[in-house]
Design a binder for these strands. Structure first.
Length: 307
DNA sequence: TCCCAGGGCATCA
DNA sequence: TGATGCCATGGG
């Protein structure tokens, strides 16, 4: 039975795009409760102002098609969703610039071929990105997604469609009303519960927004601003800037996966080899976060053998 | 059992 | 911008 489609739109892609890599990334074995992956599309809920939407997103090499399922969206909501998808899939980057730098590196040049067309997957919602970092600090990803799901199912809005629920990440306003004990019961540590509620207050009071971060002059100032907030250290600040604000030079130094990938490629001696790490990244000015993303990618097996 | 997970902070020197 | 202990729990 065909789903009723109330509106559809398409976004052209700037250059090469490997849609199978994107789908693989979104469905790589973790239980992310923010979307549902089908063989050829992703379905998720998106809110703009007071419009609650459910969309199917069909990625293909030349374009991404979007279909609205629940109701006809307003013009502003359409524009918001298109911008959201462009940021989520990083459709505006010119990957050739990155591949040019990769080609000059003897032990990393293979990535431009093996992961050709892989685009940096972002996290457009800044509050979600920070909350996700707080949750994920120093615990394994499986457990982190488990906690995230509990938080989302308890405090987030949801849409019921075709027998499934589609969730929105909780607003800061919803988390402000959570108690430490309630988050502790969801297996947050005491500190993480404190951090998250405090950060929700910062968002609700609009002392922390994407616009404020964009207004700051450079990466150094943005890092300093973020790390002045309790619970946000260097790793979280860099991760958030690259995932949510498309900061091209963000490097989550100290990241366990990043260090493992660098050691695996024999690019650093050990996890304390800061100079070795800076030496690698100095070759990728303006594309540091892309290198991080590709190094993370290299830790996982290929999605299909014939790739 | 022990160690490590997509860290950060308090404390001590 | 030193080193160490602690937090929470699950998987290898």
């Amino acid at each position: 039975l065909e789903a009723q489609i109330y509106y559809s739109a398409e976004i052209p892609v700037n250059g090469i795009f490997n849609e199978r890599e994107s789908l693989w990334f979104l469905n790589r074995g973790y239980d992310d409760c923010m979307y549902r992956v089908f063989t050829d599309k992703i379905r998720r809920a998106i809110r703009y102002d007071n419009e609650l939407m459910l969309v199917d997103i069909y990625p293909s090499p030349q374009r991404i098609n979007i279909c609205w399922l629940i109701a006809k969206p307003s013009e502003k909501a359409i524009a918001y969703v298109l911008d959201f998808v462009v940021n989520w899939f990083d459709l505006e980057a010119d990957l050739n610039r990155f591949y040019y730098l990769l080609a000059k590196h003897p032990s990393l040049s293979y990535m431009a071929v093996k992961y050709n067309g892989l685009r940096f997957m972002g996290m457009p919602d800044l509050f979600e990105a920070i909350a996700w970092c707080i949750i994920g600090q120093q615990i394994n990803l499986t457990f982190a997604y488990k906690i995230k799901r509990k938080l989302v199912e308890r405090f987030g809005e949801k849409i019921s469609y075709d027998g499934e629920y589609y969730h929105l990440f909780p607003s800061a306003g919803a988390i402000v009303n959570a108690g430490i004990e309630e988050l502790r019961a969801m297996q947050f540590s005491e500190k993480k519960a404190e951090y998250l509620i405090n950060i929700a207050h910062e968002f609700k009071a609009e002392r922390l927004t994407k616009e404020i971060l964009r207004t700051l002059p450079d990466l150094t100032h943005r890092l300093k601003f973020l790390t002045s907030i309790r619970g946000i250290g260097s790793w979280t600040a860099n991760y958030v800037l690259m995932k949510s604000l498309k900061e091209p030079s963000g490097i989550p130094l100290g990241d366990a996966g990043l260090l493992n990938a660098l050691i695996k490629h024999d690019l650093i001696r050990d996890k304390n080899d800061i100079e070795g790490m800076m030496s690698i990244f100095s070759r990728f000015k303006g594309w540091e976060s892309y290198l991080v993303f590709y190094l993370w990618r290299s830790l996982a097996p290929m999605p299909e053998a014939e790739n």
